[in-house]
Each structure stands twice: as structure tokens, then as C-alpha cells.
């Protein structure tokens, strides 16, 4: 009896199997079920790769912009002035750009994890590899004059030589008006234009002249001897066209 039941079950199983197979083949032959053409998958892969390329370019752009801003403005020097400098540094960082970089890196990670070379690796490794690659690319891009040209802001060298200065100050066009060389809180940078005793006047990127008041408490680099044409960063409150300097640092360019 048990054997007969088993046999019946087997026959039913076989029948089901045959039934499903026949059903699908018949539907395919009738044209109710159609194989997607090869170009459909090629197109899909192409779109995916385009998405990856777009995410890479966007990440490179924002990362190089971040490097450009921190380098050109000397904001990375702010922490040298103690806790106040650290606070100025943190409050002056272009957080919107940092957020954009993180979002695009995340998008990139999601897009590449479709491919075996990425998903077979632990997430930490693939994320680190992506970060390393885009950081290297961003660093290279930041060396090009791309952002300098797009922002239409003069470099410290231009300010010193007083050439190639934008006709219409303040500098910054389009996206750069809000993001690129911006006005930082209590943080000023520019080229020394002239001296007035211990005090000096700097010319900033917006071609504004600011008097920097140097007092006894002003922190200066050891043995500092500034000259006209030197690029400097100054921390201090800006009041009525002058800055009470809390600290002054030299900027290489």
C-alpha cells in the first residue's frame, strides 16, 4: 500500500514537472513568453555604467572643490590657533560639499556592488578602495586650474601681482558664489598690501582692503617677519573694516 502511494506521488510529481515544462515551452512557442533581446541587457548595463561614471565625476568634482577651497583659503591652518582656531575651522568647513561627497560615495558604492569584484569583498574594503580612488582623482583634479577658472576668484599670486583680477568684485560666479572661496566666520585670508606700524592691510579675494590690528596678545609664528605680498591667514573678529587679530599665520602659495 505504502509503495503504491509512493508510486502515485511520484507519478503526480512527474506529471507536475512535465506540466510546468510544457506550459512554459508552449507559451514561448505561441509568443506569449518572449526572451528579452541581447541589446536590452547591453543597454541596461550601459545605463548602469553611465550612472557609475556620473557618480564618479560628481564625486571627483566635489572632492576637488573641497580640496581647492581648503587649500586656497588656508582654512586648514585655523586649528594651529588653538581651540578657537579649531572652532573656526569646524564652523568654516564647507559642510554642504562634504555632505555631497558622502552622498555620491554612497551612491557609487551601491552602484558598484552589482558587480562581483565589489560584492565579493567586505563592504569596508570596497568602500575604502572607492574612497582611495576618488581621493587620488580629486587630488589630481584640484591641481588643475579648473576651479580657479570656474570660480573667477584670484589666487594669492594674482592678488600679489595685482593682475588677472576680476573686473567685478566680489569674486565667485554661479555655484562658487555660495560654495567656493567664501567668507568664513572670524577667518580672513589675503595678501599683505601695506604696513601701518605693527598693523597691516590685507587685500582679500573680493578685492576688499581690511586693516589687521596686531596687539600684544596676537599669536604670531615664531620669528615671523611678514612682507608686503605675503599671503596670510588671520583669525579675529571683523568690526568696521578692521580685524582685531587673535592670530596670524603665513600661507605658502
Amino acid at each position: 500500500m505504502k509503495n503504491m502511494n509512493e508510486q502515485n506521488e511520484k507519478t503526480q510529481d512527474e506529471r507536475n514537472k512535465e506540466g510546468l515544462s510544457k506550459k512554459i515551452i508552449l507559451a514561448a512557442k505561441r509568443g506569449e513568453l518572449r526572451m528579452r533581446p541581447k541589446w536590452h541587457f547591453v543597454l541596461r548595463a550601459g545605463l548602469w555604467i553611465t550612472g557609475i561614471a556620473a557618480a564618479v565625476l560628481a564625486t571627483l568634482y566635489f572632492l576637488s572643490l573641497f580640496l581647492f577651497i581648503t587649500r586656497e583659503t588656508g582654512i586648514w591652518m585655523a586649528p594651529m590657533f588653538g581651540w578657537r582656531g579649531v572652532f573656526v575651522f569646524l564652523s568654516s568647513l564647507p559642510w554642504l560639499i562634504i555632505l555631497s561627497i558622502l552622498i555620491f560615495v554612497l551612491i557609487l558604492e551601491i552602484l558598484v556592488r552589482r558587480y562581483a569584484f565589489a560584492y565579493r569583498l567586505p563592504l569596508l574594503y570596497s568602500a575604502f578602495a572607492i574612497l582611495l580612488a576618488v581621493f587620488a582623482g580629486g587630488l589630481l583634479l584640484a591641481q588643475t586650474p579648473l576651479h580657479q577658472i570656474l570660480s573667477n576668484c584670484p589666487s594669492p599670486r594674482d592678488l600679489r601681482d595685482k593682475k588677472d583680477l576680476p573686473v567685478q568684485p566680489p569674486c565667485g560666479t554661479g555655484v562658487y558664489r555660495d560654495l567656493a572661496p567664501r567668507r568664513f566666520n572670524d577667518f580672513h585670508y589675503g595678501v599683505i598690501d601695506s604696513f601701518d606700524g605693527d598693523n597691516f592691510i590685507i587685500l582679500n579675494r573680493h578685492q576688499e582692503k581690511i586693516l589687521v590690528v596686531v596687539g600684544k596678545k596676537t599669536r604670531l609664528p615664531l620669528g615671523a617677519q611678514f612682507e608686503a605680498g605675503d599671503a596670510v591667514v588671520v583669525i579675529g573678529e571683523h568690526r568696521g573694516g578692521q580685524v582685531e587679530a587673535f592670530g596670524v599665520g603665513g600661507l605658502d602659495y
Binding site: N16, L20, I24, L33, R34, R36, P37, F41
Partner: peptide, 18 residues
């Protein structure tokens, strides 16, 4: 299970060129 198995083979057939 039967319904899903059918769906799996249908999808496999439709996407076999991938």
C-alpha cells in the same frame, strides 16, 4: 512554492540572454 517556481522559470526564460 509551485507558483513561485513557475515564476522563476518564466523569468529565467525571459532573461536567458543576460
Amino acid at each position: 512554492i509551485k507558483d513561485i517556481v513557475q515564476e522563476i522559470f518564466t523569468k529565467a526564460y525571459v532573461n536567458i540572454r543576460s
